[in-house]
Amino acid sequence: MSGEQEREQEREPLWREEVSIFAADESYVGRRQFAKFLVLTSLGMFAGNLWLLAKSPAPRLPAVPVARLEELPVGGVKAFSYPGPNDPCLLVRYASDRWAAYSQKCTHLSCAVYYAAESRRLACPCHHGFFAVEDGRVLQGPPPRPLPRIALERRGDRLVAVGVDLQGGGDEART
């Protein structure tokens, strides 16, 4: 092989050597290259975790006014978004002095739940899951977890959303 040909071969990119279209030209990946591949995959996993961290909402959520106290009649419902515009929620006045707010996404497959005033339950129409309006716990059906509860505070004559409790439960806003 002449010197010119050798230089030409040296200039060949690595991928062409490793992934040849001819079976006879294939060569095995060396240990060092395999280790490099593993480290790059590890970097990818780390980047994925950083992406999840970046997409996680800030631990302190904003305080957002949801409704005035007398705006809803008993059994009335108001839809709002919290903490972001793509997080639909429901505010329910289920007694004269009791309000509760929940994420509207069912914990089963994220169908929109609605308030069934006659049975005083939050119902998911997709797979007949039911949640207690008092604390969001699962009463019936396939949902695996309680509905995420929106923490409410009474400020003057307004109800203000101040946080999200993923485990449900907690005190509801009352007058």
Binding site: S42, M45, F46, G48, N49, L50, L52, L53, K55, S56
Partner: peptide, 11 residues
């Protein structure tokens, strides 16, 4: 997310 990212960084 935070502890997972830290541990992933250590790994």
């Amino acid at each position: 997310a935070l502890p997972a990212a830290v541990i992933s960084g250590v790994l």
